[in-house]
Design a protein around this nucleic acid. Structure first.
Lengths: 352, 352
DNA sequence: AATATATGCTTAAACGTTTAAATAATCAAA
DNA sequence: TTTGATTATTTAAACGTTTAAGCATATATT
């Protein structure tokens, strides 16, 4: 790697001090009353030498790296990939760079990412917190590190967050099924102590209760590590499709996909044998026969919102307000034989 | 954000110089013959104050940031997301951090990412080059910046790369179809001047030629920006399914998905009406009726390989060898009514 | 004529590390 | 007793910026 040109190189070539060069290249020549001749010469030299500022040196001096740390469950998951993409785009606009890490839903990994990012002096965090990471988050907040939680939050910590209104999402999905004549509705969720899951289950229960179907409420909790096995068990036990009016609501995409495997395996028809609603869309939902009903999250809005809150925290230097956002879901109703509307040609890049 | 503890804080508390603290905390106490009592005291103080090194300061001094720049087409695309994930994991093991940027297949954006990352003094790059970015890459190489190209490469530049053996992949896919009795095979590709596309098309042509089907060779080039429209046109013109022995090979996943829309729209059956092979797998391919045949890329291997080559370049300080890797594809043969084998429960995280 | 103000530029410290070189003290060998 | 190692520690420069403070010189104001 060749040595890069520094302010010193320009200063020497022009025959002035480093300070002057810095002032000019930062556009402070008026304020600092730099002679117009000198300004020209410095600009010219910078151009000729193709000067690029060393952001590391600047960071050290300024105590601000213009870097954000983002911790998601898994960047290979297109939901998080899309969020990362949106935040990356926003960040770029404001001169920020994003470093992304995947916690794998593991609090130990999450902790180590926080440490690595802190050592790299990131200016703030956007975090998808994992089960068991409550203490970490609390510590960050106590140390006055700018943090925004995304996708999940901890009711017990007073920190900004941007999440889907999961309760409403499940409520709407359940209500939709009930209106459709489905009575025997099962909520299939992860066995996981996170706001997300709890709210997704809560909304379902609320809707069932609201429609007087309390007695037929049924929540199945599946272990993430045994998703296939537990899913098969569920299908064997519940035998949806055997009795009429069965419906399944899957609390996330991984569950829905595992469920769809079982549905295909048992040659069940949607919605006649089992009614279906999943969280998050995707190719598989569009191309299934029939295309499937799902809850769409406003991913773009989530990303932009989280970013702008974080900017507020960072630039408000400690006085940035805590903001808590629950964004609205959209129920994409299908489960019919018709092909889903094709996205327009202009559409690309965003997988949700 | 609270002030963090520095070497100076420890030095003052123990009553020694900063240098000594640095030596000890870097494990150089033997080499530097630091008194064992002092070592203990420094360790203790560091522990008590919960000292964390400032990586920015270290980077400035060491002229090495332990950071890698990764530029992909789109991090929201699970193929790139998976690659990013693998590289992130590898990097972590070696104390590196990865900053990822999405070029959107746009050379201007790619250029600006390169600049941003260079200013942040990344130690090396892993790049998925876009059409028209040849000059940028050439410049990096000339400036002796460690670079590894991933997924695509430029035959005209002598720089390390890790790509799928796309030629073989298409050759195998085409041969498989021909053996299966499909004669009327169309290759559906992007109109794009990248090694990837050219090789994917080339392998198809080679196989057709090899089996004496030169006259029925047919390559359709679709514009990325008008993928839906061009795809519909193709189906209207070619009318696959109208004549027997029709087959379609899609040069990437986006094309395959757009193609599957049309297949469903026209109620064509795979493989009776149209035979099908796509690049890259995914939920949609697994859950389609029937599950679809596709070319699997060894994503994990690609990521690990690219990373290790980059490490060689960085640590070989300029003498690291240029390595060019073409990795082997795997043809996942299906197109039958059977459900695909379910991934094991242990499987998770990797979407390819 | 003395003082104030404006202009144009330089000096030097600071950010938090690493590390070569200097220093000082102890001890062994001549 | 001097010299030479050995051991333990400090000093200070360097990495490339930013920026407060200082210093001339010229011009304007009393």
């Amino acid at each position: 790697m060749q040595k890069r040109v520094s302010l010193r190189d320009i200063a020497e070539r022009v025959g002035v001090s480093i300070a002057l060069v810095s002032y000019v290249l930062n556009g402070r020549e008026k304020e600092m009353r730099v002679g117009s001749e000198v300004v020209k010469k410095i600009r010219k030299a910078a151009e000729e030498l193709n000067y690029q500022p060393n952001q590391i040196a600047r960071s050290l001096r300024m105590q601000s790296t213009k870097t954000l740390g983002m911790i998601v469950a898994d960047i290979a998951n297109p939901f998080f990939g899309s969020l990362a993409r949106i935040i990356e785009n926003e960040a770029m606009k404001f001169g920020y760079t994003v470093v992304v890490g995947s916690s794998d839903e593991n609090p130990v990994q999450s902790e180590s990412l926080v440490t690595v990012f802190m050592n790299r002096q990131v200016d703030g965090f956007i975090i998808t917190p994992t089960e068991g990471s409550e203490q970490q988050i609390r510590q960050l907040v106590e140390n006055q590190v700018p943090v925004v939680l995304l996708d999940r939050y901890f009711p017990g910590i007073d920190v900004s967050h941007v999440v889907l209104d999961n309760r409403k999402a499940s409520f709407d999905a359940t209500t939709h099924m009930i209106r459709h004549g489905t009575r025997n509705i099962t909520m299939v969720a992860y066995r996981q102590n996170l706001s997300q899951m709890e709210d997704r289950i809560g909304g379902y229960e609320e809707a069932m209760h609201h429609h007087g179907l309390n007695s037929s409420k049924h929540v199945v909790k599946i272990r993430k590590e045994h998703i296939r096995k537990d899913m098969r068990n569920m299908f064997d036990t519940l035998a949806p499709g055997k009795r009429s009016g069965s419906g399944l609501i899957f609390a996330n995409k991984a569950l829905a996909l595992a469920g769809l495997y079982c549905i295909r395996q048992r040659s069940l028809k949607v919605p006649d044998d089992v009614d279906f609603v999943g969280y998050d869309g995707g190719e598989a939902f569009d191309l299934f026969s029939p295309p499937l009903t799902y809850i769409r999250q406003p991913v773009t809005q989530m990303g932009k919102c989280a970013f702008s809150i974080l900017m507020g925290l960072i630039n408000g230097n400690g006085k940035g307000e805590v903001r808590k956002e629950w964004l609205l879901p959209e129920l994409i109703i299908r489960n019919t034989g018709d092909l889903p509307a094709q996205p327009d040609d202009e559409f690309h890049g965003m997988y949700y």
